[in-house]
Design a binder for these strands. Structure first.
Length: 309
DNA sequence: AACAGCAGCAACCGCGATCTT
DNA sequence: CAAGATCGCGGTTGCTGCTGT
């Protein structure tokens, strides 16, 4: 009869994650791979809901995540994909593998919405499905507008992707290249996870640089979990050095490659998306661009997911 | 310098889809 | 096949830092 409950509601910790918790989570996922989130709180001793663990991983700790500083191309792509797909942030995020849906959603709500409002592009005129409201405009107008939207979206998509492609050519092994097969860039993408943690810890170190101030960046959240876990730096250590972290994350270690591969293979949303068959609309989008002398998106798709074709 | 308002972002909540037993 | 748990997504909230007064 069904599965056992994922987590008890009682005693579940909420609020900002501490660096200790992050480290516990990352090291656990490095060892076991993402997925089976139900088991994560139990096996790690984290007093967090499995949902919270998954969210923390996908939105913050997952390898290959770029944070902040959205480029013009990304911005453009988001705007047009939003016009095309509506508020389907996960779908939009699949076109921007370095960005999380939460990040895109936040960026849309805080920056782009206002920007578009300022420009008078009428974001409000869209329904939740992303299509302009039928009620406010006649059918003919709506169809024309839809066609224009689609055309513009396609163009922006091509532009944005061609920039990515160029970047990838000039910096072919860069971990930030979102369209490379992740398994081929596993070490560097995993390193970027380390970078995430390192950045986090840097902030933590800065915050705890004050004598006696040995607490997480959230300030109010105490760190009882780490001290209960023998495998993680205790709060008393206060400032972990980067070297142990590198070993913790398995950098430059061939022995960890297997787990990393499975880790990325199982988790990374872009890969999952890329391996799924394109929707009719997406395929059409890609096909159309091929015939217009633009960057061959089909080539890109072939590069990324050869098994699809 | 102190306070209020605003903006940005991390995390939570609720719901539908999917999966497991 | 049904029941119930898990997963994933989108909307929303609340905290924190910044800016203006």
């Amino acid at each position: 009869m069904g599965r056992p409950p994922c987590c008890d509601k009682v005693g579940v910790k909420k609020g900002p994650w501490t660096p200790e918790e992050d480290i516990i989570l990352v090291s656990y996922i490095q060892e076991h791979g993402p997925g089976n989130w139900r088991a994560v709180p139990t096996n790690t001793g984290l007093m967090r809901c499995s949902k919270s663990c998954r969210l923390r991983w996908t939105n913050y700790l997952r390898p290959g995540i770029k944070r902040g500083n959205f480029t013009d191309q990304e911005e453009k792509l988001i705007i047009h994909l939003q016009a095309l797909l509506g508020n389907r942030w996960a779908a939009i995020a699949s076109y921007l593998p370095e960005r999380t849906d939460n990040d895109i959603k936040n960026y849309w709500n805080t920056h782009l919405k206002k920007k578009l409002k300022k420009l008078g592009t009428g974001v409000e005129g869209q329904t939740s499905s992303g299509v302009a409201s039928h009620k406010s405009i006649s059918k003919g107008q709506w169809e024309r507008r839809l066609q224009t939207d689609i055309k513009t979206a396609k163009q922006a998509l091509c532009e944005a992707l061609s920039v990515e492609k160029l970047n990838s050519l000039s910096d072919s092994k860069a971990s930030s290249n979102c369209y490379n097969n992740w398994s081929s860039t596993t070490p560097s993408t995993y390193a970027s996870s380390t970078e995430n943690i390192s950045r986090l810890l840097e902030g933590w170190i800065r915050n705890s640089a004050r004598p006696g101030a040995c607490q997480a960046n959230s300030g109010s959240v105490k760190t009882e979990t780490a001290s209960s876990q023998g495998t993680t730096p205790s709060a008393a250590d206060c400032i972990p050095s980067p070297e142990p972290l590198e070993s913790l994350f398995g950098l430059n270690s061939s022995s960890t490659e297997g787990s990393e591969t499975s880790l990325l293979g199982e988790e990374s949303k872009p890969v999952l998306e890329a391996h799924e068959p394109f929707s009719f609309f997406e395929s059409w989008l890609l096909d159309e661009s091929v015939g217009h002398g633009q960057l061959s998106l089909l080539d890109m798709a072939l590069d990324d997911a050869p098994e699809l074709f």
